[in-house]
Amino acid sequence: MNLIRNALRADSLGLLLVVLIGGAALSLARPEFLTAYNIDVILVGFSLTVIYALGQGVIIAIGHMNLALGATGCLVAVAFGGSMQVWGLPVWAAMLFGLLIGTFCGFLNGWLTHKSGLTSFIITLATLSIFKGISLGITQAQPFYGVADSVKAFGSDRWGPLPETLLVALPIVIGVALFLGKMIPGRQMLAFGGNPNAAELSGISRARMVILAHTLSGLLAAIAGMMSVARLQLASPAIGDEWLIASFAAPVIGGAVLSGGHLSVVGTCLGVLIVSLINQALVMLAVDPFYVQVMLGALILGAVGLNRLRESRLGNAPVLRLS
């Protein structure tokens, strides 16, 4: 009983068990699950999803939300592809351009949220349609195909047994973990998320925290957007359309509390793994892809329910609304 209770309390142990048991069950049911090709597919998907999941995670950490995450990724992807195809920029310049756009989009979200004092939900709903509209308007809903060969190669190349995208994702994951765990602005962000008023009274600037978190989210969305371009080998304005649910599911499965103040990077990674396991299982067992939707929804509900249970054990007051 004690063991179970402790496992419940730990963010990642239970999740790790779920991943291992799920993986084992799947490889028993479908031996081809453990083939190199299949694991590769999972890892490539993982590298992309974990970046935008963390992009949502850093916002969840301060108790906000970013609906415009996918639209930011989309705008960056379009800018990245378009600047290479239309302006003929070299890859590094296009990447810099993309990163700038994403960071600016995030900054805009944070600045507007702070200035208006409204919930980030409505602000990012507005910027979602602005960013998405711009991406669709520029491209007229047609993808840019003129992506540089080195970018395409990056999306499909291997480094030993590992896909190259994973080699980009891992340092980013570690960077975010260090930022939130060890660095002062990161700790301040979590403190601010846990109790904004207390944090402000102890000298943490509300404006800085809100803008920092949103900017970071924009930056991560930008990286994910460009990674999608590498993976798809084209800059499609449909990139980011299906990020929303998974971007909330992974951190929440990983133990993040939506009212803020807590984000487990390891948990988020395991959450992403669980999401990709489900995806993979449903593909391999040849069931309708819409089961993925149903499963993801059920998983979010289960996970937030569990988090809520844990939270009330820890003695936190129940929160009825996000402010």
């Binding site: 089961y291 979010i300 937030v304 009825l320 996000l322």
Partner: peptide
Amino acid sequence: LIVVTTRLHSFVVTLATMSIFFGTMIL
């Protein structure tokens, strides 16, 4: 009912149920 029994914010509850409802309907 889910919102009031779990005391979770309706954002995450309806985010989950929207994919459950829609997915089930399609299936």
